[in-house]
Every structure is written in structure tokens, then in C-alpha cells.
Amino acid sequence: MTGDDMYRYLIKRILLIVPTLFGAATLVFFLMRLIPGDICVIRLGSGGTSFTEQALSECHAALGLDRPLWLQFIHFIWGFCRLDLGTSMWSGRPVAYEIATRFPVSLEIAVFATVIAVIIAIPLGTISALKQNSWTDLAVRTFAIAGIATPSFWIGIVSLLAVLNLTQYFFGQPWMPPINYVSVWQHPLRSMSIVILPAVTVGYRYSAVVMRMTRSAMLEVLREDYIRTARAKGLVNRIIVNRHGLKNAMLPVVTVIGIEFAFLIGGLVVTETVFNLNGIGRLLVQAIGNQDYTLTQGIVMLIVTIFVLTNLVVDVLYAWLDPRIRFA
């Protein structure tokens, strides 16, 4: 691969991001407005209090909801182009600030869950492929299918109850991790103790997906001609598996890891609820429930951007790993 080839490939992929983001922005803007409800009605009346039509109009005017839809859309797109996501209609704070306070929680869980998933999935997936149809393979596949089939919120609730009951049984007092998040930069150990259970809960399902992908990719690669050639040359099995098998089987596995990682940033609503973590997923659900258009748009655009960038990184890795892709 020459430097020019890689450069052209990168430029092409980066340019494709623009229409993707614009399409996502258009979709989220108009879909949000199709949902029945009105943030002003919720703000003014959610405590069961009555309010006048004048109060409602003033609220609409204050939030800019009395302007024509096309004008609101242009305002949103123009703001997004300037990286200004606006102000939350519910809290009155900048959307960027609202997201920034929740993002570290989701990112920490996503990173930990990914590490756990990779540590479990790749060795087990490889062993499962190498010992195809054996008892070991059966056990690993059962473990993986259970991980995919079991809802992570159930695993979360059960693991939390298990910790409470076991600590009460052995130490006389029930214990659970703190439910008030602190950043890993402030109190590393406390922060770890908060996110470890949710990370394991999510990491188990995540590892099951990656494990199955690793196994099927390895099975395919192990049947390739170059593997047979390597064996015929008398190479030791460890080198065949690690250097020739695993490296080539990693292409689809990297894709799955990338997609799952991006999903974790905004997709952990239930896990965040079970463990009382104030992450992006819960914020998104709150924003939708409150009909907070600006905040919902901001979070969705953040998730879309993470997906797009993760895909870009995966594509670049693909091109780096497999020269056939960048020349296609």
C-alpha cells in the first residue's frame, strides 16, 4: 500500500460522513416532532397544577417552538455545523454540558465492557474453533448462546442481588457498590467498584457475540489453502493459529467489536437504570420522555457521530489489514 492510496481512501471515507450526518440530523429532527406531546405541557403541568393558555404560549415562545418548523430546522442544522447543540429545553443548560456530565459514565462502562469481552471472547472463540464439535466447543457455545439469550437487565438485577445476599450471609451486613458515580480520575478504586458490575453484565452479552464471530471466522480461515500449506511446511500449530489463522480471522471480529462499542455509548438504558448510573442512555430516555427536542437531537447526533467515526476507524483498519479492500 502506498501513502497516496491510503490518503485517497481516507479522504473518500471522510467525505461520506457529511451526507450521513445530514441524513441522521434530518431524520431525528422530524421524527421527534411526530411524537405526540409538548414539553411546555409537561413543564407546566407535570405537578398536577393548572396553567393558562397564555402561560403555554409564553413557554412556546421562550423555547422557540412558535417559529415555523423549517426555521427551527435550519437553526438546528446551522448550530450543528458550528458544533453548537443549543440549550436543553428542560434544564436550560447547554446540551454540550448535559452530555459532557454523563458521557464519562457511559464511556467508562463501554471501555471496561469491551476489555472484558475481548479478554473472554477471543481465546474462547479460538479454542472453540480449534476443538470443533468437542465437549469444550459445546460448553463454549452454550456459554455464548446463554449470553446472547439472557437479557442484560436480568443479569444485572441477579448479580446485584447476589452481591447483597452473599455479603449479608458471609459478613453479616449487605453490601453493594456505591450508587453515586465518581470519575475514574477523582477516585479510581471507587469508580472501578461502581462500574465493574455493570461492565461485567454488559461484557458477558458482548463477549458472547464476539465469541461466536471469532469461532465462525476461525473455522473459515482454518480451512483456507494457506493454512493447509503452512501445516504441510511443518510449522508448529501455535504459529499457524496465532500468526496465520487469528490475524486473518480478526477482520469480521474487529467490525463487531467496533459496532458493539459504539452501541454501548448510548444503548445501555436498562443497565444504567438497574445500577442507577447516570449515563447517556438514561439521559436520552429522559430527554425523549420530556419531549426535550434539543437535548434528544444532541444525544442522537453524538451517537450517530460515534457510530460513523467507529466505522471509519474499522474501515481504515480493514484497509490496513487487507490490501484488497483499499484497491477495490
Binding site: Q173, P174, W175, P178, I179, N180, T273, V274, N276, N278
Partner: peptide, 21 residues
């Protein structure tokens, strides 16, 4: 004092049980 936000009843009860609240 510290007031903790925990919307789910199960989490609240667990927190009281474990003396987190």
C-alpha cells in the same frame, strides 16, 4: 446531607438495605 437520585424502586430499596441511603 447528600440526596441521591434513583428513579427505580428496586434500586432505592437495595440502597437502603446496603446502607448506601
Amino acid at each position: 446531607f447528600v440526596g441521591i437520585f434513583a428513579p427505580k424502586q428496586a434500586v432505592q430499596l437495595d440502597a437502603i438495605r446496603a446502607d448506601r441511603a
